[in-house]
């Protein structure tokens, strides 16, 4: 299981240079204490590849059951890491300010807005995204219910709605229509498929399947 998908990512020259710099460094955590991030680098006109190495930090995450090691800038959000570096684009950017819920993922089983936290803050944690919800080809019951009840239109908020819906049931906040609506209000569907989403959640809740 302990793969290092870092090598699966398309490397750029910069990435390569940074990685070799990091490999040479025996004091990875000390990097964080090195002063002089980008502003300093820019003003001192340091060699850009050297500066870039100082900008990054090592990070270990388990994403959808797979272990990853990264070297990331502290300013990279969990959302941007997932979308731009891992190409797990099922997690969506809808507002980038925690105001729409399209970026909802599970961190150690809890639903959170991945846009509002820096990836480095999740060191060692387990992340589940929409891509990790199904069991192979077998859809998760919530995914099945969304298809059956047409709990979406354009589909863009859907992964966030589904991740949130699964958590809503697990938390025990799906006991009535009104409770579902309140506890799903952090996920905006501009197409307005709300009634169908609530129906899907109710079916899963009442079906009693393990979510």
């Amino acid at each position: 299981m302990a793969t290092n998908p870092e090598t699966d990512l398309p490397p750029t020259n910069h990435d390569e240079a940074r990685r070799s710099f990091l490999r040479q460094s025996s004091l990875l955590t000390a990097l964080a204490l090195v002063p002089g991030p980008v502003v300093h680098a820019a003003s001192a006109e340091l060699d850009e590849t050297v500066a870039a190495a100082f900008e990054k930090m090592p990070l270990k995450l388990e994403i959808n059951g797979k272990k990853y090691k990264f070297s990331v800038e502290p300013r990279t959000t969990l959302l941007d890491l997932l979308r731009e570096q891992l190409h797990l684009t099922g997690t969506k950017k809808g507002c980038d300010y925690g105001q729409c819920g399209a970026c909802t993922v599970h961190v150690d089983g809890q639903r959170v807005n991945s846009c509002l936290s820096f990836a480095v803050m999740h060191e060692g944690k387990k992340i589940t995204t929409i891509e990790g919800l199904a069991d192979g080809d077998k859809l998760h019951p919530m995914q099945e219910a969304f298809v059956k009840h047409d709990g979406f239109q354009c589909g863009y908020c859907t992964p966030g709605q589904i991740m949130s819906a699964v958590a809503c049931v697990r938390e025990g906040h799906a006991d009535s229509e009104a409770e579902i609506r309140e506890y799903m209000s952090g996920n905006i569907c501009r197409c307005g498929a709300y009634a169908n989403i609530v129906a899907a959640i109710q079916e899963v809740k009442q079906g009693g399947q393990k979510v």
Partner: peptide, 21 residues
């Protein structure tokens, strides 16, 4: 009838314009 692209939408596999690698 269920949507023909429903599965893509509920699995995160539907690709939107900022998601082409």
């Amino acid at each position: 009838m269920n949507r023909v692209d429903g599965r893509l939408k509920v699995t995160g596999a539907a690709t939107y314009s900022a998601e082409y690698q």
